[in-house]
């Protein structure tokens, strides 16, 4: 009897220890990387903290759907609803990959519509994003309360943007904290490609010289390197098994790599200019972008083909 009591106590202490301590120790160790896996030539090793034995956690950040839409708008783009993914397509998406890609795509469309005060369209695209999130079993990212808040704040763009930002945060944190970082990556790639699609279509056959939107598009070459690293990072799961969706997506993006390889983006060193009054520092530098009309056309066609495959 005494022995049994002792056993129960032991199990209890051990279990509580596991519950409280192990999650803290988890620290994403499995996803941590040693120094020296930096981005190609641009971001080579540095020894800022001079602590080479420490494992590091690496994050890659792509422009979110909201930032993507903002970048398009701030480059002087016009709103064109015809470019958004049709809402009727929602029923076509059943696989994890297509649901994830289109969660990103519909969220970028939603952000784009919201920034141009297309309130009714925004609500419809929020519903579409909700359908994608539910298909991926992401609970509580977008619920009835989200739609109600959106409806109640149709004339308040700041609140609408906060709602969009929060729903995206809910989805991505849910996926990452439930050991589905690959799905979170596919969502981001879908949203980023949609931004690229909208931007390249808006330029159309216009003269590309001096076009701010074309510069924005060419600069995406920098983010494409991050896309490649994110995909490479998620190619295998924690058990070492290849992720089929990531393998497929990597292959699908190969023509985009070829198109970006033909664009040259050169940046100079940065000089920081602090402003004591506004407390906003200005990073002074120059960027030289080299892109020909032929290369731009090739990029536009490549992005369009890719996006057609994603939304079909």
């Amino acid at each position: 009897m005494q022995h049994r009591k002792y056993l129960i106590r032991l199990i209890t202490i051990f279990s509580v220890f596991c519950l409280l301590v192990l999650p803290c120790c988890k620290s994403d160790k499995s996803r941590e990387k040693k120094k020296g896996v930096d981005l190609e030539d641009f971001l080579s090793e540095d020894e800022i903290f001079d602590d080479i034995d420490k494992a590091k956690k690496i994050f890659y950040s792509l422009p979110s759907p909201l930032e993507t839409a903002m970048l398009i708008k701030s480059a002087g783009a016009e709103y064109d609803e015809q470019l958004l993914n049709s809402l009727e397509n929602t029923r076509n998406y059943t696989s994890n990959k297509s649901l994830a890609l289109n969660l990103g795509i519909y969220t970028t469309d939603l952000s784009f519509a919201s920034l141009f005060d297309q309130t009714q369209t925004s609500i419809k695209y929020m519903e579409a994003a909700r359908t994608m999130a539910e298909g991926l079993d992401i609970t509580d990212a977008i619920d009835d309360e989200t739609i109600r808040r959106l409806n109640d704040n149709l004339n308040n763009r700041d609140v609408i943007m906060d709602i969009i930002s929060e729903t995206f945060l809910n989805s991505s944190s849910y996926l990452k904290e439930n050991d589905r970082p690959a799905v979170a990556t596919v969502v981001l790639v879908g949203g980023w490609i949609e931004g690229l699609y909208i931007a390249t279509q808006l330029v159309g056959d216009d003269n590309i010289k001096g076009n701010k939107l074309v510069d924005r598009i060419a600069e995406q070459k920098l983010s494409f390197r991050i896309v490649q690293r994110m995909l490479a990072d998620n190619l295998k799961d924690q058990s070492g098994k290849e992720n089929k969706d990531i393998v497929e997506l990597t292959a699908e993006l190969e023509p985009l790599k070829e198109a970006f390889d033909r664009i040259k983006v050169e940046t100079s060193e940065i000089k920081v200019e602090p402003d004591e009054e506004s407390k906003v520092a200005t990073l002074k530098s120059q960027t030289k972008i080299t892109i020909t009309p032929e290369v731009f056309k090739e990029l536009r066609v490549t992005v369009s083909n890719l996006r057609s495959n994603f939304v079909q």
Partner: peptide
């Protein structure tokens, strides 16, 4: 306005992390 991206992890003192954007 928050961009909506999520970058967070549990770290222990002495640990380092890097982010590229």
């Amino acid at each position: 306005i928050h961009d909506g991206n999520y970058h967070a992890a549990i770290l222990t003192e002495g640990e380092e992390a890097e982010l590229y954007k």
